[in-house]
């Protein structure tokens, strides 16, 4: 009984932080703020999935959490690679 209440409180705290991260992603101002917010959102999703697995007693959610962690990491690196190569080509064009 009490443990369910604790899981609920923790998952609400995580959800609020995901909302705050979403606000940061919308406010920006730089693209790196938005990527940072997306990264926080992703890692908090992993935590939320782990808590929900125990809140509803469904351990298969843990596999989803691990998979989401993998995808989130690769996604963040891919987005950064994209912006980095774009800012490099722009700097090169500015030099020419």
């Amino acid at each position: 009984m009490l443990d369910n209440a604790i899981y609920l409180v923790v998952s609400i705290a995580i959800l609020v932080t995901m909302g705050l991260a979403m606000a940061r992603a919308i406010l920006g101002p730089t693209v790196y703020d938005r990527v940072l917010a997306a990264n926080v959102f992703g890692t908090k999703t992993v935590l939320l999935l782990s808590v929900i697995a125990f809140l509803y007693g469904r351990p298969d959610f843990l596999d989803l959490a691990l998979t989401y962690a993998l995808i989130n990491f690769v996604g963040i690196l891919a987005v950064l690679q994209f912006f980095q190569s774009r800012s490099r080509t722009e700097a090169k064009e500015a030099k020419d």
């Binding site: 705290a13 995580i14 609020v16 932080t17 995901m18 705050l20 991260a21 606000a23 917010a37 908090k44």
Partner: peptide, 10 residues
């Protein structure tokens, strides 16, 4: 700590 980090990010 999750909440504090979220507040800090804002």
């Amino acid at each position: 700590f999750v909440l504090i980090g979220g507040i800090g990010a804002l």
